[in-house]
C-alpha cells in the first residue's frame, strides 16, 4: 500500500470509514468499471466513480454532446457541445482526478463489439447507462454470458428504477423480470416523454454506489430486488424478485445463446 501524501488526503474521508480503510481504497484504485452510455445515468455514475478513485473507467458512447443533453448530463459542459461524448467525459474525469485512467470507446454497443469491450480491460463491473431497450437487453445478455456483474437502470419523467446482477449467485437478471423488450411504441423514450434532470443524478449515483460496494465487498446489493423511485411522491420501493428458472438467458434451459441486436440489421425478432 503505497499511497502518496496527496492520495492520503484526497481519499481521507474514505480511508476513515472502517468499511473502506486503506485496503478498501486500494481496491477502488485497482478496480476497473465500464460505463456504457455517458448520458443522464452514465454522467453522474462516471463522475462519482472518478472522484472515488476507480483506477480505470471505460466510457462507451457514439454520440456527440447536444445542447439538450446539458440539463442532466453533468459530465458535459456548454463548451463541449458538438464534441464526442466520450472525449468530453474523458476531459472532465482527467480534470477531476489524475489517479483515474480513462479508456474511451467511440461506438454504440452491439452484438459484434460488446464482449470485446468487456475483455479489453477485463472490467470488474459494468454500468448500464444507456437510453434504449435494445442496448439494455444486449448488456444484460452479454453480462450473463460473460459472467460480469452489472447495474441496470432506467429513468423517465419523474421515475427511475435499478437492479444489480451478480453472476454465480441466485440473482435474477433483467430478463427474469422483463422477458423481452416492450412492443414498439408501448413505452416512450426520454426524448418523447421528458425526464426531470435530477433523475439521472439520483439513479446514476445509486448505480455508482452499487459498483463501489461490489468492489469493496461490503453491504447488501440490489441483487434480487428492483428498486423503484418516484420523485413526485418521494417514494422508494424495493421489490423482491426471484430468479426465473425459465428465463430465456439465465434460466435452466436458456433459449438465447447468442447476442441479439434488436434494432440491428440482422434483427429478426
Amino acid at each position: 500500500m503505497d499511497f502518496n501524501e496527496q492520495q492520503i488526503e484526497r481519499y481521507s474521508r474514505h480511508i476513515i470509514l472502517s468499511e473502506v480503510g486503506v485496503e478498501g481504497q486500494q481496491k477502488i484504485l485497482n478496480s476497473k468499471v465500464l460505463v456504457i452510455g455517458t448520458g443522464g445515468l452514465g454522467a453522474p455514475a462516471a463522475m462519482f466513480l472518478a472522484a472515488a478513485g476507480v483506477g480505470t473507467i471505460g466510457l462507451v458512447d457514439a454520440d456527440k454532446v447536444d445542447l439538450s443533453n446539458l440539463q442532466r448530463q453533468i459530465i458535459h459542459q456548454t463548451k463541449d457541445v458538438g464534441k464526442l461524448k466520450v472525449k468530453s467525459g474523458e476531459e472532465t474525469i482527467n480534470e477531476m482526478n489524475p489517479d483515474v485512467s480513462v479508456v474511451t470507446y467511440h461506438s454504440f454497443v452491439d452484438s459484434s463489439n460488446i464482449l470485446d469491450i468487456f475483455k479489453d480491460q477485463d472490467y470488474d463491473f459494468i454500468i448500464d447507462g444507456t437510453d434504449n431497450f435494445a442496448a439494455k437487453f444486449l448488456i444484460n445478455d452479454a453480462c450473463v454470458m460473460a459472467k460480469k456483474p452489472f447495474s441496470h437502470a432506467g429513468i423517465i419523467r419523474f421515475n427511475g428504477q435499478l437492479t444489480t446482477y451478480i453472476p454465480d449467485n441466485d440473482t435474477p437478471c433483467y430478463r427474469c423480470m422483463f422477458k423481452e423488450p416492450p412492443p414498439e411504441g408501448a413505452v416512450p423514450s426520454c426524448r418523447e416523454a421528458g425526464v426531470l434532470g435530477v433523475m439521472g443524478g439520483v439513479i446514476g449515483t445509486l448505480q455508482a454506489t452499487e459498483a463501489l460496494k461490489y468492489i469493496l465487498g461490503i453491504g447488501e446489493s440490489l441483487a434480487g430486488y428492483l428498486l423503484t423511485y418516484n420523485a413526485l411522491t418521494m417514494e422508494f420501493i424495493k421489490i423482491n424478485i426471484k430468479k426465473n428458472s425459465k428465463c430465456p438467458v439465465c434460466g435452466d434451459e436458456p433459449a438465447i445463446k447468442t447476442l441479439i441486436d434488436y434494432n440491428g440489421p440482422v434483427c429478426t425478432l
Binding site: G37, G39, G40, L41, G42, D128, G129, T130, D131, N132, F133, K136, A153, G154, I155, I156, N159, G160, Q161, M177, F178, P181, P182, A186, V187, S189, C190, A193, V195, G200, L226, T228, I239, I241
Partner: peptide, 10 residues
Amino acid sequence: LEILRFVGGG
C-alpha cells in the same frame, strides 16, 4: 401484485 414498468431512458 407488483406492477413493474418498463423504464428505458438513460
